Simulated assay, not measured.
Amino acid sequence: MEDNENKEADMPVISMFFGIIITMNADDHVPPHIHARYQGHEASFTFDGNLLKGDLPRKQRNWSRHGCCCMPKSWKPTGSWPSTSSTHSESTRYADKEATDMTIDYSIKVTQCEPMPGYKLKVTCSDGATGIFDMSRYIDRGMFKPLKDPQTFDRVRLAFGVPSWPGDIDIAAERVRFDMQII
C-alpha cells in the first residue's frame, strides 16, 4: 500500500488552520511533539514551540510559538503526553529503549505498509529499510483494541507516512522504524 495523503484517508490530524496540518501519533517517541505540514514543508515541534527537525516558511513557523499553548488537551489522548491518568497512560514511551535517544530520525515515514497474519505489518520506511513490525503487543491496549478484529487490522493504510486505521487509530512511524525487525 502506497502513502495516501488525500482527505479521504483516515488521518491522525488533530488540527488544520491557515493551510497548516497538525498531526500527532500514538505511542510516539519523547520528547512529546507534533508534526506540522504546510505546502510540502514539514517540521516537528515540542509542545512549547521549539523546532526539533524540519522547516516551515517563516510566517507559518511563527504559529508554533503561539499555537502550541492551546493544543495539549488535544494531544493527551494520543498517549504521548506525560500523564498519570489511567485513561492516558497507554503509551509504552519506548520503555524498553533509551527514551532520551536523540538519534531518532524525526522525519522518518513509512512509505509502504502491508498487513500480515498475527498482527504484523510488513513496512518499508523512507530511509529504505524494510522490515516486520509486530503490533501484537498493542492489540489489548486502549485505542488499539478495535484492531483485534482481523478485518479491521487488515484495513491499515498510510496517512502522512504513518500506518493508520479507521477510527483515528495510528502508530508513529518513528516507533515502527525503531522497533521493526529488518528483513
Rank of each mutant, 00 (worst) to 15 (best):
I20T: 13
H33Y: 01
D28H: 02
M24S: 04
H66L: 13
A36D: 06
H66M: 14
S44L: 04
G49E: 15
P32S: 09
N50E: 15
C68T: 15
S44G: 00
E42V: 14
H66Q: 13
M11R: 13
A26D: 02
P57Q: 09
A36S: 11
P72E: 11
N62S: 14
F47E: 14
N6I: 10
N25I: 01
G19R: 05
I34Q: 03
A26G: 08
T46R: 08
F18K: 06
L56E: 06
R61D: 13
A26L: 01
V30H: 00
N25M: 05
C68V: 09
T46G: 05
I34K: 02
S74V: 07
G54A: 12
Q60P: 04
L52T: 02
F18G: 00
C70M: 15
R65K: 15
F47T: 14
F47M: 15
D48A: 01
C70Q: 14
I14V: 15
E8V: 12
C68M: 15
D10S: 11
D48I: 03
A36K: 00
N62G: 14
G54D: 05
G40F: 02
G67R: 09
H35Y: 10
V30M: 03
Q39H: 02
E42G: 10
M16P: 00
F45E: 02
D48R: 05
K7Y: 12
D27Q: 02
I34L: 14
D55L: 02
I20Q: 03
V30L: 04
V13G: 01
A43K: 05
A9D: 07
I21S: 12
N62Q: 12
G67T: 07
D55H: 03
D55F: 04
H41C: 03
D55S: 05
H35W: 08
A36L: 06
V30D: 04
P57C: 08
H41K: 01
P12M: 03
C69P: 13
F18A: 07
H41T: 01
Y38G: 00
I21R: 09
D28S: 10
T46Y: 07
T23H: 01
K59N: 05
C69Q: 15
P32M: 01
K53M: 09
P32Q: 01
R58H: 11
M16S: 09
